[in-house]
Design a protein around this nucleic acid. Structure first.
Ligand code: SF4
Ligand code: SF4
Lengths: 137, 137
DNA sequence: TCCAATTACTACTTATAGGTAGAATTATAA
DNA sequence: TTATAATTCTACCTATAAGTAGTAATTGGA
């Protein structure tokens, strides 16, 4: 019942980038250092994020990563889906079957509520939101 | 964001047993057949459950498994904790840190609500509840 | 006593997530 | 043009979950 390491790292990386968006480009070395994430693993994750289109990379000397669109338009859920970690509507907490509304177990209705809250939380929180509010990490 | 296979199987096995508690003992072959769980994996899981004390096993001919205490007193959360799948209070959805109430991120408060609902769901649902209500599976 | 039916134990295999190493590619600045 | 600093690619390693195989231990009954 927890997000994968990759998703967790991705959220930390991108919210750090959102918080430091005044510096046009941030490179992997800086990010790995600031966030204490293994450099090699960070670059692996960043490559996936770049492929997804959320971030663009500039290669070569003085290269780095930057956002393509405003951080207010990037939702946490988009990050999670890169790593297959977003919560699909048909996901069952017990993993027994798929919800079809016809046949449901005793926990089904109780599961709907926290599921919807989490989906809403991920879908409606932008990078700007999470980078701008609360503690900075 | 999903329970482990072992937890899912365990819930299915035990709720099936709760539903068939009139038959004093149920053996691994019957359970594996009825629930379509690989026999060898089922026995592995059952051995862990027996060790936890939720269920007692009778070895030898005509042996099998049965509950030690009433199914109304066995909570889903007890099953999950055998497989380290229950949700601890300090669990963070982002995995960034541990909640201490002093420093929290933008998602912390939004995460508390679904977390508490899930904890409550697991802690307050007994095997009798989930076996007796809703679809039988 | 001996057989058959049962769970328990030990060890292995497979699949996946997490993480690391090194070379290839790209682009800038000097 | 060339050295250098950066991302990207390919391949590997490690840890853990998931699943399988074979055997030992236990029990009841013929
Ligand atoms: S009814 Fe219960 S078992 Fe079926 S999909 Fe919903 S939560 Fe899962
Ligand atoms: S404040 Fe945010 S990052 Fe920290 S433990 Fe709570 S949910 Fe996790």
């Amino acid at each position: 019942m927890q997000l994968s390491n990759s998703s967790q790292y991705a959220i930390r990386i991108l919210s750090y980038m959102a918080l430091h968006k005044e510096s046009k480009l941030l490179n992997a070395t800086q990010l790995a250092e600031a966030l204490q994430i293994p450099y090699k693993f960070l670059t692996k994750i960043m490559t996936e994020i770049v492929k997804s289109g959320l971030v663009v990379s500039i290669r070569g000397r003085d290269g780095g990563y930057k956002f393509e669109k405003p951080t207010s338009e990037i939702m946490v859920n988009e990050i999670l889906s890169i790593f297959h970690d977003s919560i699909p509507d048909e996901q069952c907490v017990l993993g027994i079957g798929f919800c079809n509304g016809l046949c449901k177990c005793a926990l089904h209705d109780q599961w709907m509520e926290p599921k919807h809250l989490m989906q809403k939380m991920f879908q409606e929180s932008s990078l700007e939101d999470i980078a701008g509010k609360g503690c900075k990490f």
